[in-house]
């Protein structure tokens, strides 16, 4: 699929403006591409390479390092079941197997209707709330096996609409109002201490 569309390009430029070095925006922009297409398309990576002033090979180098970036289509709902130690102790693997049965796929797979992709995931930082899973990175804590099945049913039937499609992370974005920004500080430019620090003493700046 595609390069970033006009709206996302505007968002991309806003994101880029917050970093002193363009390449730093790469991961946020890859997320944006994934939000647009549901996965990170090659063309999007080529577009991001242009925006960040790097080569596409560098973009794919970064993209492929991170678990969350999918380079091929996945289900509308990505179901991550934690099976790491705390969840394993309290039924994480059973939960995973139940969902494998329910969806008729092995973890790592995608249902034929492209609704669900199931993953055997590492620790999700909800260890006291085991077993736990995420759907498109929205948490389900201390989830019972039947409850998990119901989540699937409800998503499939459309009874549940609170979870945005795969790729959407925070629905609220940061915006820095014009005139309120302190201004990005490029590493090669500022050679002076910020204004609020008192003038340096001969030995240093006093900290």
């Amino acid at each position: 699929m595609a390069r970033l569309n006009a709206e996302n390009l505007a968002t991309a430029n806003e994101i880029l403006s917050r970093y002193p070095v363009k390449k730093s925006a790469m991961i946020p922009l890859l997320h944006l591409a994934q939000e647009q297409d549901g996965y990170v398309a090659d063309d999007a990576m080529a577009h991001i390479a242009e925006l960040c002033d790097v080569t596409p090979a560098e973009v794919v180098g970064t993209c492929s390092f991170y678990e969350m970036f999918k380079r091929h289509e996945v289900g509308t709902y990505l179901v991550n079941v934690c099976t790491n130690i705390s969840c394993m102790l309290l039924g994480g693997e059973e939960l995973l197997h139940r969902l494998e049965d329910k969806l008729g796929i092995k973890h790592g797979g995608t249902t034929e209707d492209k609704m669900f992709t199931l993953e055997d995931y590492e620790c999700l930082a909800a260890c006291t709330e085991a077993p736990c899973m995420q759907v498109n990175y929205r948490y389900f804590h201390r989830i019972e096996l039947d409850e998990a099945e119901k989540v699937i049913d409800d998503l499939r039937s459309g009874a549940r609409t609170d979870i945005p499609p795969h790729g959407t992370l925070g629905k609220v974005r940061q915006h820095i109002p014009t005139g309120r920004s302190a201004g990005i500080v490029p590493p090669e430019q500022a050679n002076e201490a910020p204004v609020w620090l008192p003038a340096p003493t001969p030995e240093g700046e006093g900290s």
Binding site: H31, Y66, M68, N80, A125, Q134, Y137, L169, G170, K171
Partner: peptide, 8 residues
């Protein structure tokens, strides 16, 4: 990355 709510 996996913490959508925290990001929001």
């Amino acid at each position: 990355g996996e913490m959508a709510l925290a990001q929001e």
